[in-house]
Write a protein that binds this DNA or RNA. Structure first.
Length: 468
RNA sequence: GGCUAGGUGGCAGAAUGGUUAUGCAGCGGCCUGCAAAGCCGUCUACGCCGGUUCGAUUCCGACCCUAGCCUCCA
C-alpha cells in the first residue's frame, strides 16, 4: 500500500483510488514564457517519478499537467520580442517538451493549455457569481470573495485574519477584501481578450487549473500536486474556486515538492539566481545526471543546487553503470528473480516516494553485482542481479542506457578524440605493453587521460575506456 | 508579527527508542607492471538545554539557528 504525505492534513495516508485501480492526478505545470529553470525541473521530474511509480504498482494512471499559455509574462515577453503571444507560447512549449524528453519525463496523458479552456473557465466563473462567491468590481474585474468561502486558508494553515495581520497586502480599492483575487481581468488595449458576460477580458491565473482539472479529471480526483510555492495562494484559490462553484470534493491528496535552492536561497526568476534546465543540460555529461540529482533527495525537502552536487551524481551513476557494464550485454536483462533488494526498494518508494532510500538500495545491489561478477561461477547470478538493477532503476527513469553509451558520452565526446582514434591509441598501448615498454604505454594512457579518456585494463589483456 | 518545514559524520543524504544507511572524499589491505575499476576493512555524526525511559539522534517541552510562505514564482 502506497503511503503519501497529504499537505492538507500534514500526515501520511494510504492512497486509496476513488475509482478502484485508477489514479487520477493533476499537477500545475509551467508558464511558457521562457525556458524553464532547474527548480521547475525538480517539480516536473518529481511528479513524473510519482506517476511512474503508481503505474509500476499496476495502477492505471491518468496524469494531467497543464501548460499556462495566457499570462502577463507571456504577453509582455511577446510584446518585447514583437511577436504574437501565441507564437511566443508555442516556441517555449516546444522547448519545454525537448528538455523534458531529455530528462526522461514521460508525456502526461493530457497537457491542457489554458487558452483552450476559456469557455470552461467562464462557466465556472458564472457559477461562482451565481452562488455568491464572486462579484464584479468597480474596475470591471470579476473577483473571488474570499470571505464567503468558509474553509479558505485550510490548505496553507492560515486564517484570513492572520493573513491580514501580515499587513503587506496590496491596496486595491476595487476589492472587498485585500485577499480577494481576480477570476476575470477586463480587457486592456493590445492584450488578448475573449468576450464574456462581464465584458471582454482574459482569465486570472488561478481559474485555469480549476477549470482544466475539473474538465479532464472530474470534480473529485486523487492527487493534486505542484511546487511548495503554489500552496498559497494558488492552490488555496483553486480549492475556493472548484469547491465554491459546485460543492465539489476536489483533490483527495495534495502533494508539494520542496524548493531547489542555490546558495541556500530559493531559486527563482524574480531573484535572478536561476539556471535554465537547458543551460545545465549543456554542461553535464548526460541529462540523466540531472535527473539522478533531482531524485537523490526526498521530494518534500529543500535541496541545494551546485556543480559539486552534479559531479557527485555523475560519480554515483558511473558506479551503477560500471556494475552493469558487460554483464547486461549478456542474456535477457528483463528476466530476473527479485531479491530482498526489490522488496526494500518497493518499501522505500511506497513510503511517500523515498527516492534517496530507493537509490541506496540500487547502490547496495550494485555492490552485490560487482561481487558476483568477480566469481566466474556466479555469472548467471550476476546477470540476474543486473536485470534487477536495471528494472528497479527503470522504475525511477534511470539506468536505461546501454552502459557503453553512458561511458562514451561526455563533455569531450563532441570536441575531443573520436572513438576510432581512441581505439587506435589503445591498440598502440597494448603493443607497447606486450613489449613491456611501460614508459610508452603509460605515456599513451596519460595522453588519453589529458583528453578526458580513462582506461581500465581488464583480465585477459582487454582494455575498456570511458569519458570522464 | 503570523504560519510552515528543517537543523545528522569532510560533503551529499536516509532510516531508526537499544543493533552497518548509502554514495563521494580519507585511511589500511587485496587485485594490477603501475594505474583505473572492483572487493574487504576502517575513521569523522546526530543544533543547545531540560523531561519521559532500563536506554533517545529517534518521543515530549523550551531555546537557538536556517530556509520558505504571508506579493508573480515549481
Amino acid at each position: 500500500m502506497i503511503q503519501i504525505h497529504n499537505s492538507l492534513t500534514g500526515r501520511k495516508q494510504p492512497l486509496v483510488p476513488i475509482e478502484p485501480g485508477h489514479v487520477r492526478m493533476y499537477s500545475c505545470g509551467v508558464t511558457v514564457y521562457d525556458y524553464f529553470h532547474v527548480g521547475n525541473a525538480r517539480m516536473l521530474v518529481v511528479f513524473d517519478m510519482v506517476s511512474r511509480w503508481l503505474r509500476h504498482g499496476g495502477l492505471r494512471v491518468t496524469y494531467v499537467r497543464n501548460i499556462t499559455d495566457v499570462d502577463d509574462k507571456i504577453i509582455n515577453r511577446a510584446r518585447d520580442a514583437g511577436v504574437d503571444w501565441r507564437d511566443h507560447a508555442k516556441k517555449f512549449t516546444a522547448a519545454m517538451h525537448e528538455d523534458l524528453d531529455r530528462l526522461g519525463c514521460l508525456r502526461p496523458e493530457k497537457e491542457p493549455k489554458a487558452s483552450e479552456y476559456i469557455d470552461e473557465m467562464l462557466v465556472m466563473i458564472g457559477q461562482l457569481v451565481a452562488r455568491g462567491y464572486a462579484y464584479q468590481a468597480s474596475n470591471g474585474d470579476v473577483m473571488y470573495d474570499v470571505r464567503k468561502f468558509g474553509p479558505y486558508g485550510r490548505l496553507s494553515g492560515r486564517k484570513l485574519d492572520d493573513l491580514r495581520a501580515g499587513a503587506r497586502v496590496e491596496v486595491d480599492e476595487a476589492k472587498r477584501d485585500p485577499l480577494d483575487f481576480v477570476l476575470w481581468k477586463s480587457a486592456k488595449p493590445g492584450e488578448p481578450a475573449w468576450p464574456s458576460a462581464w465584458g471582454e477580458g482574459r482569465p486570472g491565473w488561478h481559474i485555469e487549473c480549476s477549470a482544466m482539472s475539473t474538465k479532464e479529471l472530474g470534480e473529485h480526483f486523487d492527487i493534486h500536486g505542484g511546487g511548495l510555492d503554489l500552496k498559497f495562494p494558488h492552490h488555496e484559490n483553486e480549492i475556493a474556486q472548484t469547491c465554491g462553484a459546485s460543492d465539489a470534493k476536489f483533490a483527495e491528496i495534495w502533494m508539494h515538492n520542496g524548493f531547489l535552492n542555490i546558495d541556500n536561497e530559493k531559486m527563482s526568476k524574480s531573484l535572478g539566481n536561476f539556471f535554465t534546465t537547458r543551460e545545465v543540460l549543456a554542461k553535464i555529461k548526460h541529462p540523466e545526471v540531472l535527473r539522478f540529482f533531482l531524485l537523490s533527495s526526498h521530494y518534500r525537502g529543500p535541496m541545494n543546487y551546485s556543480v559539486d552536487q552534479l559531479t557527485q551524481s555523475e560519480a554515483a551513476l558511473n558506479r551503477l553503470y560500471t556494475a552493469l557494464r558487460d554483464v547486461s550485454a549478456v542474456g535477457d536483462e528483463h528476466v530476473y528473480s527479485p531479491t530482498a533488494a526489490t522488496q526494500a526498494f518497493q518499501a522505500a518508494m511506497d513510503d511517500d516516494f523515498n527516492t534517496p532510500e530507493a537509490i541506496a538500495v540500487l547502490q547496495g545491489l550494485a555492490r552485490d553485482l560487482n561481487t558476483a561478477r568477480t566469481i566466474p561461477a556466479d555469472g548467471h547470478k550476476a546477470r540476474l542481479l543486473a536485470g534487477e538493477l536495471r528494472a528497479l532503476g527503470g522504475a525511477l527513469g534511470l539506468l536505461q542506457l546501454p552502459p557503453e553509451d553512458w561511458f562514451r558520452c561526455g563533455v569531450g565526446a563532441a570536441s575531443g578524440l573520436s572513438d576510432a582514434e581512441i581505439e587506435a591509441r589503445i591498440a598502440a598501448r597494448k603493443a607497447a605493453k606486450q613489449a613491456r615498454n611501460f614508459p610508452e604505454s603509460d605515456r599513451i594512457r596519460d595522453e588519453l587521460a589529458a583528453g578526458g579518456v580513462i582506461l581500465e585494463d581488464k583480465p585477459g589483456g582487454v582494455t575498456t575506456w570511458r569519458r570522464s
